[in-house]
Design a protein around this nucleic acid. Structure first.
Lengths: 205, 205
DNA sequence: CCCTAAAGCAACGGCGCGTTGCAATAGAGT
DNA sequence: ACTCTATTGCAACGCGCCGTTGCTTTAGGG
């Protein structure tokens, strides 16, 4: 979401009705996505619920994918705070918990599932997701850099790998295995990954 | 896929036409799923390509979800061989590579994406996926048990956690971040997780 | 060689798709 | 206040797929 993915004509009349329509449509799109899922998403239903004509959707966003992408970009800027508990293990556990909580929000969950389902055939959506995770990992890498500064893990530790491993495990359970995402698991996961970082630095070659 | 998820009337005439129809439909379903994705899946198209009447699909499988589920169950029995390289790190790298290769098969990738996209609103599909991963992890845990036997990792190491962490990372890149899944990454991942197991045993408490 | 389970066939109303031509409206610039 | 034009609304279109129904045909198990 850092790079400028132009998917919508620049607003020449940014104020007033256009902006209202835009906001209503994007909000409604995410709500519908959360309620019925991407496979059953109906542009007619979105238009109706948003109090907008169907024609407007096609004229402004071109296609279902364009609309969904813009809705996700608009409302997907959620920043997740970087914890600072004093230990890598604690930070990873706290961060994982934040991810779990966020991923249980219907809109967030629907967004993730949509990306997973169309990531191979909608390059613009895949690109947006890639950018999103890239920046998110850059921020979250802070917990590893602090651990390095504390001497808790080797200086050649790869922050990305550490954070990615934690995040990946959470989403695997959410999307595929369906196993529980309780505090017990989060703690064990954080301990395990933190131990790996201490031992290997995540940059073994 | 171990437990008996009955989603289809028991075949009273298992030989001959019924079996042929069944096979053709399930094959075609997965092919279509791979080509157009779950969101655009058309039962009419499946029937036509399979040389079967549309009515048959609804009478036998009831709904789109039932059909997709059975297709996945039927053809999803893929066994992944458990590597034995002599070291946990080597085994995990080999296993991860197998997963990467398998996940690039169009049918397998389509299946995974389908599960991820409807896992929250199709309990039968979610259950099947859960069972699939449970048994797969049980088998793959062998690499960890051997590492324990070799004294490479602590005896209280949790085999599931170790294997799951590796698998999860692969699927995260495939489904969400889109980052590369080359040998370099697989090696770093395997080294990192193996180091975590050596240090923590994955069962910290 | 039967006879019945299973598959084929034809048609149904309904709905969402994506597009089109034209009318209404609202907001930005003067 | 007044344009004037970008934007939205509106109505209607053909199309394809949905999921179902009643009936006929067929094939394979006994």
């Amino acid at each position: 979401m850092t790079q400028d993915i132009r998917t919508e004509p620049a607003a020449r009349r940014p104020g007033g009705r256009s902006a209202r329509v835009r906001g209503a449509v994007l909000d409604t799109t995410l709500r519908e996505l959360a309620e019925v899922g991407y496979a059953a998403l109906s542009l007619e239903a979105i238009a109706q619920r948003a109090g907008v004509n169907k024609t407007t959707l096609y004229r402004r966003w071109g296609s279902r994918e364009g609309l969904v992408l813009n809705a996700m970009l608009e409302r997907g800027q959620r920043e997740v705070p970087i914890p600072d508990t004093g230990s890598l293990r604690g930070d990873l556990a706290a961060y994982a918990t934040e991810i779990v909580v966020a991923s249980r929000t219907p809109v967030v969950e629907a967004t993730i599932r949509t990306v997973a389902s169309v990531g191979d055939r909608e390059p613009r959506i895949a690109d947006a997701s890639r950018g999103f995770w890239r920046t998110r990992f850059e921020f979250a890498g802070e917990v590893v850099r602090r651990a390095i500064a504390r001497g808790e893990v080797p200086p050649d530790t790869d922050p990305n790998l550490v954070v990615e491993t934690v995040v990946a495990s959470v989403y695997f359970r959410l999307l595929l295995s369906g196993d529980e995402l309780d505090d017990g698991y989060v703690d064990r996961l954080a301990a395990f990954v933190a131990a790996g970082a201490s031992a290997a630095g995540g940059a073994q070659r």
